[in-house]
Write a protein that binds this DNA or RNA. Sequence first.
DNA 1: TACATACAC
DNA 2: TATGGTGTATGTA
Length: 644
Amino acid sequence: MAAERDSDVRAPQAVSSDGAVYETATGRAEAHYYHFSHDKAGMGSVDKAKVAAVVHSMSEGSSFYRNEERRDARIQQQIEGMRRRWQALREGGLELEGAAATARRERAAMETRRRLDRVWVVVDMDMFFAAVEMRDKPELRDQPMAVGGTGMLSTANYAARKFGVRSAMPGFIALKLCPSLVIVRPNYDKYKAAAKLAKQVFRRFDPQCVALSLDEAYLDVTDAVSRKLGGLPAAEMAAFHEAVWDVVAAIRRDVSVATGGLTCSAGAAPNAMLAKIASDMNKPDGQCLVPFDAGSILGFVGALPLRKLPGIGRVSETQLGGLGLRVVADVRDEAARLHCVLSPRMATWLHRVSLGIAESGRSGSEAGAQYRRKSISLERTFRDEGSLAALQATVAKLASKLSLQMQGSKAAAEAGSSGADGRQAEAGRAGSEAGAAEDDGVQAARPPRGHVPGFFGMADSDSDSDDAGRPKVRPAMRGRTVTVKLKLASFKVLQRSATLAEPTNSAEVISAACKRLVAQESERFKAAHGGRPLVLRLLGVKMHGLVFDDDVDEEERAAAGHMCKLDDGSDEDDGADGGSPERADSAVVGQGRRPVLRAVLDERLRQMRRHSQQSQQQHPAKRARRQPGGSSGQRSLSGFVSIS
DNA sequence: TACATACAC
DNA sequence: TATGGTGTATGTA
C-alpha cells in the first residue's frame, strides 16, 4: 500500500469503524508498461511517472513489449463490448429491474451467511527473501538491494523500493532505475529454514495453521483469543478487539524473536479474505484489525480499490475500471447492473466480497493435511531456439526430471538433492513440496536418457524433512494427461495436450508423448508459415489427472469425488444463484473467457477443505478433531459478537 | 478433453 | 544482457 506507514503496533482504535485505515489513492491500471504498480508498501515516495518512463524505454520495441501491446488491445476490445452493454441498460427497463430484484435477494441471502464468530489472522513476512539476506549480512541493510537475478527479481528491500524497484521486475530494468542496486542470488534453503522457525510460532497459536507460501500463513486464532479472555465472555466489543489485537501482536513479536529479527505484518478479521487484505494495510512491521461488526466491515471493504481484492488482478481491474468502477463500494452499488454485464458467477462473487463476506467457515484445520496437488509441471526458459532436435532434447530432460519428482521421495533420495533454482518467485505452493528445480543449463542439448539415478539433480532440493524434523514422505504419483507448453519467440504461448490410456510416471512414456506433441506443432507451424521453423523461448511439461500410490482406495475416492458436495454442509447454496456453491464463486468479465475473479485464498482453503472432506468420507477414522462448525469444545465467540 | 487466459506468490 | 516458475481455477468449444 502506498504510504510507508508508521510501523509501530498501534492501538486497535487505529482502525476506525468506517474503514478509514485504508488509504484510497491508487490509480487504476494504465497501459501495460505501468506493470509494476507502485502501490506496494514502501513505494509512497516513488516518482511514478519517471519510473514508468524508464520501464517503458527499456521495454519498447522488444518482443515482450509487442506481445503486451497485442494483449492490451484485446482487453480494450472486450472492454468496449462491456461498456456498450453497460450503457444500454435503461433505468426502469425490464432487464435491469429483474437484475435488481436478483441482487436484493442475493444480498439478503448473503447477509444471512455472514459469520463473525471466528478470528482469522493472516501473517505475511515483510520483504521476506530480502529480509533474510539483510539479517545475515548487515552491510546490506542500508543499501538498495534485491533478491533474484538480472532476469527477474523476487523481492526488494525498502531502500530499493524508493527507486521504484519491486518484485517481479526484471533485474536489468531495476538496475536502470537504481544503478547502485545490489542483486543477491536467492538462497532458498535459508528462506525455508526461516519459514520453518516462523511456522513453529504459528503452530502455538493455531496448531492447524496453513502456510500458503514460504512467507504467508493463515491462522484461526479463535481459541487463542478465547483463552486470552480467560474463558469469560467479553462484555464489550472493545475488550474483545483488544484481545485479538494482543494475540496478533504476540504472534508478530514471537516470530521476530524466533527468526532472529525478521519482521512480519498481520491482519485480523472475521474471515480469511478480510484478514488477508488487512495484512497488507500496515506493512511493514505492522498490523491491522478489521472490527467484528457488519457495519465496520462494509466501510472497510467499501473503501478498497478493487485491486486489493485477492482475485482481482490487472486485467479485471482494468475491465471494471472501464465501467467506471474503482472501489469496492462501487461494485456494491452497481450489483444489479453488474448482473447484466458479467457472468452470473462473477457478478455473484463480486457482490459477496463487496459485502466482506467470504467462506471463512471452518477453521483452517481440516485444510492442510489432506491436500493433494492436481498437477505437476516443469518449464524452462532459454535463448530463442529453432532447432527441433535441440528442443526435443530439452523436452526429454524436462520429462525425466518430472518423472523423477513423480516417483516420490524414494526416487528423490536416490537421485540425491541439490541446490535451488535461481528463478523461483517469493513463493512456493500451498502445501506443496516447494518445487525448486535445479538450475541447470537451459539448452540441455544432451541426448534423452532414461532416468539415471543421480544424474539429474532432484527438484526437491530441501525439505527432506518436515518442520517437525520427521522425514517427509512424498507419495509417488502417476498422471494421465500430459501437456506441453510452448512459448514462441514472440512470447505467444501455446499448449498441447494428450491423454494416455494409463496413468504413468515413466520418463520414457512422458518424454515420448511430449515429443510427439512438439513435433506435431513444429510441423503445423512450418506448414502454416511457409517452412519457417518454430522458434521457442520456453518449453514446459505438465501432468495432470494424477493418481497417488498411497491412495489406498482409489475407486472409492473416485466414487466419493462424484458424490461429494463441493463445500461444507453448513454453507449450502443460498439459492441466490440457483447453482452449486462452486458456481457461486467466479465468473467472467467481458466476452472472451476471463474471470477468475475469485478470492483465490478463500478458494484455496475451500478447495483444500473439499479434499479433506472427501477423504474423511472414506476414512472416518481420520476425522479431524475439530468438526465442521465446531469450535473444538471451546466457546464460540458468538456469545459476545453480534451476528447480523 | 483440449485450449486459452487470469491470478497468486 | 535482456521479462520466471509452479500451481490453481474458469470458460468455451
